[in-house]
Design a binder for these strands. Structure first.
Length: 421
RNA sequence: GUGAGCGUAGCUCAGCUGGUGGUAGCACCGGGUUGUGGCCUCGGAGGUCGUGGGUUCAAGUCCCAUCGCUCACCCCA
């Protein structure tokens, strides 16, 4: 029996890795322009950390966590909880009134895999802790949009407010009342949601529910003055920054800790998975986890989903591996000579390759083409005795003589100058 | 957890109502080009048809089971 990777866990191969690297590098660059600092936290945490932050009754905590039940530890299903734990544990708030943090890494959820959804998936997670100002909410969204633009991805930004402990319960009661009166018209899932998480009905894909919910009370009308002003200021700042967005009063969040502003970067090109990034404000969470009473806001981007989108929107043509120089050797002595020259060239910063199998020149040229080599240096025993190798520009097909008279060290210094000019 | 679909070469796939596994495409190796890649051309290598049972003279094909994968629901990045 062949051993294969387990379901929902994927190898990331060769060219695909280049897309990952490009996404991560672009993200780090932009995050750091916004003053974000990277932190890295362990993958395993006390189970309680997640149940307390994400919410005891959420699907994630109820049935999706990889938990070592005998040890009371869990593989993180998301990053915010871990990041806040580290923030609190190390008292990072005393270093700066506002901390801007990001982390990149794998998350684990035991869900049924499908397109854009895996059991081990990767997120880039950004959090701003200690700022309650709505400008920060908008700034974070603007940063997300900047990243999407830099990656050449076309997605849309939707925003909503979920209110706060002052106004959400009232709205919730209102909504329940409205839905109860129309219970017969709801899909079976929504009837179940009514008791577990009534806000979720706003998000239902069922056509009947969608229509029904159109006339349901709107959370945006139910916000208290503070939340309402906050949301208005977020909108105003987005407008000032030139970030386009759409208000979506039906957008809800799966995790319990969200308050006020929530937002999603969405696409309709990933099958059933719409969100490539999502987040929001969580003003009570840090205190709830035993830390100082500080507000926070953050969001996560799904790297696999970005890679899929990027591949689908065809924005990765330029991402190809290449080699500066391929050295083709013919004959035993030439091969020995070439092996040393290859090593020296690498010391001088050239991406250099050769083939040790002693195959025909044709085969070696083919290999050079396959590695997308810019130049090929041909050294046969004949060239060796005449102290003149042939340097071929693979693109223009021009060939010049390259003298082998000097020491290998000197040649290795000269080659980069020729090749990089 | 629920539902549907699919497992044939490294990859993408043909294979009709059962009758000897494809000169298929891509990739790989070699020749045509006596020492020059991409294009062309010729050849070569590569398979327990996911696995186990059953029906049959005969199963890649039909039936059952099992494993795996995919997509969708739920939920979510």
């Amino acid at each position: 029996m062949k051993i294969k990777a387990i379901n929902g866990f994927k190898d990331i191969l060769l060219d695909t890795v280049l897309r990952w690297q490009h996404i991560e590098q672009t993200a780090r660059d932009i995050f750091e322009r916004f003053g974000m600092r990277e932190i890295r936290t362990p993958i395993l945490e006390k189970t309680e950390l997640f149940s307390r932050s994400i919410g005891e009754a959420t699907d994630i905590v109820e049935k999706e966590m990889y938990t070592f039940t005998d040890k009371g530890i869990t593989m993180r299903p998301e990053a915010t909880a871990s990041l806040l734990r580290a923030f609190i544990e190390h008292g990072l708030h005393v270093l700066q009134p506002v901390q801007r943090l990001y982390t990149i890494g794998p998350m684990f959820r035991h869900e049924r895999p499908q397109k854009g959804r895996l059991r081990q998936f990767h997120q880039m997670d950004v959090e701003i802790i200690g700022a309650h100002e709505p400008q920060v909410d908008a700034e974070l969204m603007a940063m997300g949009q900047m990243l999407m633009d830099a990656l050449g991805l076309s997605v849309s930004l939707e925003i909503n407010s979920l209110g706060c402990p002052d106004c959400r319960p009232g709205f919730r009661a209102h909504l329940i009342k409205y839905l109860e009166e129309r219970k017969e018209d709801l899909c079976p899932d929504c009837r179940r949601r009514l008791t577990i998480n009534p806000l979720r009905t706003l998000d239902c894909k069922n056509r009947g529910c969608k229509a029904l919910v159109q006339d349901a009370p709107s959370i945006l009308d139910a916000l208290c003055n503070n939340c309402s002003e906050h949301f208005a200021a977020v909108e105003q700042t987005l407008n000032l920054l030139g970030v386009s967005y759409k208000k979506n009063r039906f957008m809800v969040r799966g995790l319990d800790y969200y308050t006020r502003t929530t937002f999603e970067f969405i696409t309709d090109e990933l099958g059933a998975q719409a969100a490539v990034g999502a987040g929001g404000r969580y003003d009570g969470l840090i205190r709830q986890l035993g830390g100082p009473d500080l507000p926070g806001i953050g969001f996560a981007l799904g790297i696999e989903r970005l890679v899929l989108l990027m591949t689908q929107q065809d924005n990765c043509k330029a991402l190809k591996p290449s080699t500066d120089l391929f050295i083709a050797a013919l004959g035993k002595e030439a091969a020995e000579y070439a092996a040393v020259l290859v090593h020296k060239c690498r010391e001088h910063n050239l991406k250099t390759a050769m083939d040790y199998s002693g195959r025909s020149l044709k085969a070696q040229m083919k290999q050079a083409a396959r590695t997308d080599s810019r130049y090929t240096l041909i050294i046969g025993d004949r060239e060796l005795s005449e102290k003149k190798a042939i340097l071929r520009n693979m693109q223009t097909q021009e060939q010049v003589t390259f003298p082998l008279g000097e020491s290998i060290e000197k040649q290795a210094k000269k080659l980069p100058i020729i090749i990089q000019s």
